[in-house]
Write a protein that binds this DNA or RNA. Structure first.
Length: 203
DNA sequence: AGCCAGGCTACCG
DNA sequence: CGGTAGCATGGC
């Protein structure tokens, strides 16, 4: 299985090129995964992970820009803002009433746990954060080796490997057992899966 | 012009 | 427990 996964990784890399996520982190330099993030960057990446739930990244980018324009990008500002105003600001990302609530819940958590890497369980206790979002935050904001399983991953690997797995944890186990637990590999692999998922239809 | 997007919660049986 | 309605905008 390890060889199969690595060969898929390599063919995706060849096809799509180096992705270098997280996508909107302006300070990111490709091949500089070691570069530590500031608290601001960690918070912004986490907000993006929440906003992109079942939503195209284009719409999320608009919402993030709008948050910046309205001076709502710090956890404190998010907590202080009236929820209706926050919702209006992130309108383009869809489900904006729910997501405004989710951002506030996360902002509160973030302030209470400043400068600490959260545990997966503590993230899952937050209203609005499920497994995929928790793992995205851990992997992309905190550089922890959690493989992110999204719909693209399931569709693509069901097809490539002829599998038919459903539960999230089973999927994640497959990658965790077969690959070395290196956040840089998990990061790039998932980014490549998304690149593939966006250009191909797997239905 | 409908279908779909880097899900999650609440509620149903 | 597993299954599913509801949430909602914008791109193609």
């Amino acid at each position: 299985m390890e060889q199969k996964l690595l060969s898929i990784y390599n063919s995706l890399l060849k096809k799509h090129g180096y992705q270098g996520w997280w996508p909107t982190n302006s300070r990111y330099h490709p091949k500089d995964y070691e570069h530590p993030y500031t608290q601001e960057e960690i918070f912004e990446i986490s907000m993006g992970a929440i906003l992109t739930q079942n939503t195209s990244w284009k719409n999320v980018e608009k919402a993030i820009n709008s948050l910046k324009e309205n001076n709502l990008s710090s956890p404190k500002k998010i907590l202080d803002a009236p929820i209706d105003m926050l919702a209006e600001t992130i309108k383009s990302s869809g489900y904006y009433n729910q997501k405004a609530k989710k951002l506030k819940k996360f902002a509160k958590f973030f302030l209470e746990n400043e400068n600490k890497t959260p545990s997966r369980d503590s993230l899952l206790e937050i209203w609005g954060i499920g497994k995929e979002t928790a793992d995205s935050i851990l992997l992309y904001a905190y550089k922890q080796p959690y493989f992110v399983i999204d719909n693209y991953t399931k569709r693509i690997f069901n097809k490539f490997l002829n599998l038919n797995i459903e539960p999230y944890d089973e999927w994640q186990n497959l990658f965790h057992k077969s690959l070395q637990k290196d956040y840089k590999i998990f990061n790039e692999f998932h980014a490549l899966i998304v690149a593939e998922g966006k250009t191909q239809r797997y239905r």
